[in-house]
Write a protein that binds this DNA or RNA. Structure first.
Length: 142
RNA sequence: AAGGCAAGCUGUCUUAUCGCGGCUGUCUCUACGGCAGACGAGGAAAGUCCGGACAACACAGAGCACCGUACCACCUAACGGGUGGGGGGCAGUGACGCGAGUUGCUGCUCACAGAAAGCGCCACAGAAAACAUACCGCCUGGUAGCUACGAGUUAGCCGCUAGGUAAGGGUGAAAAGGUAGGGUAAGAGCCUACCGGGCAAGCGGUAACGCUUGUCGCAUGGCAAGCCUUACGGGUUGAAAGACCAAAUAGGCUGGAACGUAGCCCAAAGCUACGCGGGUGGCUCGUCCGUAGUGCGCAAGCGCUGUUCCAGUGGGUGGGUCGUUAGAGGCUGUCGGUGACGGCAGUCCUAGAUAAAUGAUAAGACUCGACAGAAUCCGGCUUAUAGGCUUGUUUUCCAC
RNA sequence: GCCGUUGUAGCUCAGUGGUAGAGCACUUCAUUGGUAAUGAAGAGGUCGGCAGUUCAAUUCUGCUCAACGGCU
């Protein structure tokens, strides 16, 4: 399997999973990103150990399809390149993940990269053992 | 050479690494797999403003309603698009004429059928805004009063009254042909000439229309992107159309509506007519489909089963395949045409996703990169757009 | 992808081919010891934008921008 790949099975496409994610999932925010994640889905995920990921840019902030496409592609690149390192760091990853760009304007790629990686590192992957990481536990958003 | 304007064309490139989409080939651990290969957004992909193809509604018929189009001819699959032509309007400039005005050239521009078919509207101002009218005026007759002297059938001033006028004034976006002259109490197409206009004929043109001649004193303002009239066109809904696979809009349950009458000797079956219900999505007609069986009762009627349709309930799905990309296709040459475009020959095939594929990093080049991302497919229109190229035209400068 | 609706004062809305209004809010004055309420006066508008039709457009027509809704 390709190390840095992002094949179709790692993309979140099922309407049922998406509904489950936004109903039960936890969310974190760091400008300009918001992420929603769910540690375990009701059915097994085909892409294990990696999550199924959904990337979204609201039409309300970016009217032109060209702008939305560009931001989604950059987000996907950031996630794709960081994915193996993230797994090595956390050992277990969420099952479902949504990355939503809430900024109202374009940001430089390096800035986006730094912020999204910081945000991904804040995800608490071990809900049963609170102190599995050296960092302090992230604020739980209900 | 530079700048402006118009029309047309074009729409950053190269290498490496990682990554994405379907396709083809191949490998095996047979799966949402690995490897390799070539291919992979636009001139507007956009807005969804028009027109088609295609599909479903059984067939897609007629009339009304509704909607759209509107100088003429042609192009086209079709169009509200395009090409060519006609006619206006505006600006600049020249010529003719005393003037009203006419006309040449150049540029821009026009949603450009009908206002003597009818209805409606035209604020304010103004006398009057549409079968014209008469405020200030002008002129004539009659007449109360006053003044003057030439003492009158006088002249003037200021009123009243009966008329004649539409020249001048003023209002307005718009005032009922204009200019010049005659004419008159004053005036007036009242008359004449010219200009403008209406009507008719002839000629030219496929036509829009143009030209010429005659005739009419001129007889009816604007708005139809107000209603409307005329001509022509439009059945409705859109790929979330639709077809197929799997148990899969099938089957179940509840409620409601229709299943009638007459004729062909009688019964059965069938047919016909008038009804009733429905397809039919604006209405009507036509057309099409259904209108069955049975129990009780003398009958009216009541009930059961069934068929068709409607409404609800409940269950199930929210998957796959096709439609889905080779087409009114592109390019080159040649022929026809003023042109849009068409004929013929050769050649090329180059996105096809479905939570939805083109990006990131590094290096380099130059003019330093604008607007911007396919979703059934085509033809247009409109809107956004950095830079570059070509052609035409005009202005300035330089050289000969 | 397809089909619609709406843009008028700070806010909520009328309006119609002829000088743009109502309620609330705002400002000033009166009233009160003071505030509220009340009364009087006042200010505030490129009628989303650009063209066109018309003598005249917020209204009619075309294009455009923005906001919102519906259809699997």
């Amino acid at each position: 399997m390709k190390l840095y790949g992002f094949p179709k099975r790692e993309r979140l496409r099922s309407q049922k999973f998406i509904q489950e994610l936004f109903e039960k999932g936890s969310s974190l925010f760091l400008y300009p990103f918001k992420i929603v994640y769910l540690l375990a889905a009701s059915k097994p995920i085909l892409s294990a150990p990696f999550p199924q990921v959904l990337i979204s840019v609201p039409r309300k902030h970016f009217r032109r399809a060209h702008d939305r496409n560009l931001i989604k592609r950059r987000c996907r690149e950031i996630y794709r390149l960081y994915k193996p390192e993230w797994l090595a760091k956390k050992q277990t990853l969420p099952a479902l993940l949504a990355i939503i760009y809430l900024g109202k304007q374009h940001e430089p790629f390096a800035f986006m990269q730094k912020r999204l990686i910081t945000l991904l590192n804040q995800v608490n992957c071990c809900p049963y053992e609170k102190t599995c990481e050296t960092e302090p536990p992230p604020p739980k958003v209900s």
